[in-house]
C-alpha cells in the first residue's frame, strides 16, 4: 500500500486555481519528484500535504488514514517530516539545539521543566548531525548558517521524528553541485534502508533525473505528466511547457 495517496486535490487563491485536480501516490522507499515551472503549484501541493494549507477539494491519505485538513502538528505526529522552500529553523538556538528540540518533541518531553534542554537526547542529536555532516557546525547559532547548511539542518530536524514520509521543498537550493549529489545520495540511502517515502521538488534537473524513481510534472496547477525519467524526457507536453516558456520569454 502507498504511504501517501492524494486524490482530486484542488486549491483556489481568490480567483486563481493554484492546484487543480491533482492525484498521485508515493510508495514506501520511493522517491517521487514534483517538477514544473515557477507558479505551477508545487509548493501549494506540499503545503496541503503538510497541513499548512487546507485543500478546497480532494483527499489526502497517509497509509489508510484520511488526513485532509489536519493541522501540521497532527500530520507530523503521523510520521511526516518536511523541509521548507524558505528555510525555517530556530535562529536563537544552536544547530544542535535545533535538532534536540525536534527530538524532545518526538519523545514527548515538551512540558518538562526540570532538566536543562541542552542535556536532552545528546547522543541521538550527534548521530543525526553526523549523518548530515553538520558536526563541526553543531555549536553555531542556526541564524548564522549558510543557506545550504540550513537546508541540511532542516533535513536533520525532519528526520528526528523517524518519519515514514519526507517532504522536501527544494532541498538542495543554495548548495554546490557536489553537495547536492551527496545530500540526495544520503536521502536515497535513507529511503532504501528505512523504507522512507520521499516527495520532493527540485529545480536542478540533474538531481531530479539522477535520483527520482518517478516524476510528476505540474503546469498551472494541473498534472500534465507522470512517469520515469526517460518517459518524462520524451513527453512532448513537458517539453512544450519547459521549452515553450523559454521560447516565449526569448521571443518577446
Amino acid at each position: 500500500m502507498s504511504v501517501l495517496a492524494v486524490s482530486g486535490l484542488q486549491k483556489n487563491f481568490g480567483g486563481v486555481r493554484a492546484v487543480d485536480d491533482v492525484s498521485f501516490s508515493v510508495a514506501a522507499g520511493e522517491m517521487l519528484a514534483l517538477i514544473g515551472p515557477n507558479g505551477a503549484g508545487k509548493t501549494t501541493c506540499f503545503n496541503m500535504v503538510g497541513g499548512q494549507l487546507a485543500p478546497d477539494h480532494g483527499a489526502i491519505h497517509l497509509a489508510a488514514q484520511n488526513v485532509t485538513g489536519l493541522a501540521p502538528r497532527q500530520i507530523w505526529r503521523l510520521g511526516v517530516g518536511r523541509t521548507f522552500q524558505i528555510t525555517a529553523t530556530f535562529a536563537s538556538m544552536t544547530v544542535r539545539e535545533n535538532v534536540q528540540m525536534a527530538l524532545i518533541s518526538h519523545h514527548r518531553g515538551l512540558w518538562r521543566i526540570v532538566r536543562a534542554a541542552r542535556f536532552s537526547h545528546v547522543a541521538e542529536a550527534s548521530d543525526l548531525l553526523g549523518q548530515l555532516g553538520l558536526d563541526d557546525q553543531a555549536d553555531r547559532a542556526a541564524g548564522l548558517l549558510a543557506y545550504g547548511d540550513l537546508k541540511r539542518l532542516e533535513l536533520a530536524m525532519a528526520l528526528a521524528s523517524r518519519p515514514t514520509l519526507l517532504l522536501m521543498d527544494e532541498p538542495t537550493a543554495g548548495m554546490a553541485p557536489t553537495e547536492r549529489m551527496a545530500l540526495m545520495a544520503l536521502t536515497r540511502r535513507l529511503a532504501t534502508e528505512r523504507g522512507l517515502a520521499v516527495l520532493f521538488t527540485e529545480h536542478d534537473m540533474d538531481v531530479v533525473f539522477g535520483v527520482a524513481d518517478r516524476i510528476l510534472v505540474l503546469d498551472r496547477g494541473r498534472l500534465i505528466a507522470e512517469g520515469s525519467g526517460t518517459e518524462i524526457r520524451a513527453n512532448p507536453q513537458v517539453r512544450a511547457v519547459y521549452l515553450g516558456t523559454g521560447a516565449t520569454s526569448g521571443g518577446h
Binding site: 530556530f90 538556538m93 518531553g109 515538551l110 518538562r112 534542554a117
Partner: peptide, 19 residues
C-alpha cells in the same frame, strides 16, 4: 528546560515549530 526551549522555538519560527 525543554518547555522554555519550546516556547522560544514557537517565537523563532512558528511554522517550523508546528512542523
Amino acid at each position: 528546560a525543554p518547555l522554555g526551549y519550546a516556547i522560544r522555538a514557537a517565537r523563532d519560527s512558528a511554522v517550523r515549530a508546528e512542523a
